[in-house]
Design a protein around this nucleic acid. Structure first.
Lengths: 213, 213
DNA sequence: CTATAATCAGACCAACTAGTCGGTCTCTAG
DNA sequence: CTAGAGACCGACTAGTTGGTCTGATTATAG
């Protein structure tokens, strides 16, 4: 029909994500995105009716990639062992192995940056975040529940809270990584959670190291 | 000498803290603080040369109260038992007991809100946060180290990371509380950390419930 | 070839922001 | 009593922000 606008849209999304992860949504101005991506006002507002719409598109893309990573590592953990407890430990180990790289590429989590700019976008955007976090909880609780049946915890524990603790650790570690400027913090914090799960289900902390893809 | 300006300064600090904890530093305008505190531009810039200076004063006051709470609960835990492992478990329990109240009064942690407004204040402000978080780590590592001597962990563990994990959980829980709008999350997440510490040192999860002040 | 719709460019605008400044009020030292 | 200094007031300003608008430039359908 006309010339292809998809690459421009992509370029804007990529640059915007970089800036938002670094400076937050509110502190990232449209003009800054234009500079970062060599775009123009016209191009920006052609592809995104408003900054809200960009924010929405950003988080939707981010959430999709996030859930894809979740499912990918769950699947990979299932290949390592049939024991759901060992799967959980392996799952954490997989994230640990890529933790340094993740922190290097993403100076924060998009969900965190959105928390204090709630008036900069509509409720639908919030729902995307909520649904994603809820999916994490549900998928992990599922595995945790099966693990607890095979390996009864030494003392009763709230498995929902354990599932949330994985996400809590991720978000908290992103914050502390920034605050203390310590790039090893993410990896080590995930290590603590892995250690916790291994003790909880009484399985080896380091079950025949998982091969990466 | 002249009429007393301290109450005005206090009122501005209180109102500003409320707004910053709710909306973040960048999203909190000086005018909004004036409305919130029934103050005037003149009063504000008389007490604080700039918004940066307010941010600095805010975080210094916050950090002082934060460290005071840390030391207070550590002292209280020492009264309950001489065993450092039980002290750690008690320490977490003390925070759990006030978790619901804390979340109700503080919709977030000031350190978190500052992370994405680093260009809104000078490096000194950042140092205040860094020093506070480092103090948490040092004080907890100290106790953890003594605990590990009396109760050797069932598998080797990075005690520095365990100390940081307490702080990580706090910050992460603040984020998730907002994201998922779940006021019980903080308490339950702290419960997981307590459960972890109890398993780590093989002490009761619930050592003769600690009396509050 | 031409009409037409999507794509992009950038000058422009109204609202908002941190900070200024001249002036007023109030207390207390001497 | 009074002079001066600290405390406060609010209109004003220079710069920034998200968003608009007029046009120019493609690429393809017919």
């Amino acid at each position: 029909m006309t010339r292809n606008g998809a690459p421009t849209r992509q370029r804007i999304l990529d640059g915007a994500e970089r800036l938002v992860l670094e400076y937050g949504l509110g502190a990232t101005t449209v003009d800054a995105i234009l500079r970062e991506t060599n775009s123009s006002k016209g191009a920006f507002f052609h592809h995104f009716p408003s900054k809200n719409h960009l924010a929405r598109a950003l988080v939707e893309r981010y959430a999709t990639a996030d859930l894809s990573l979740l499912e990918g590592h769950l699947a990979q953990a299932r290949e390592v062992s049939d024991d759901p407890a060992i799967q959980m430990v392996t799952f954490l180990r997989l994230f640990e192995e890529s933790a340094d790289e993740i922190v290097a590429q993403h100076p924060s989590c998009l969900y965190v940056t959105y928390m204090f700019d709630k008036d900069l976008f509509d409720d639908g955007t919030n729902d995307v975040i909520l649904r994603t976090l809820t999916t994490w909880r549900e998928r992990l609780v599922e595995t945790l529940h099966r693990a607890a049946q095979a390996h009864p915890p030494r003392s009763p524990v709230d498995l929902d809270a354990v599932a949330d603790h994985v996400v809590t650790t991720f978000e908290g570690a992103f914050i502390l990584t920034r605050a203390m400027n310590d790039s090893s913090l993410m990896r080590r914090q995930l290590g603590i959670v892995r250690h916790y799960l291994a003790m909880l289900f009484d399985v080896p902390v380091d079950p025949a190291s998982a091969q990466s893809t």
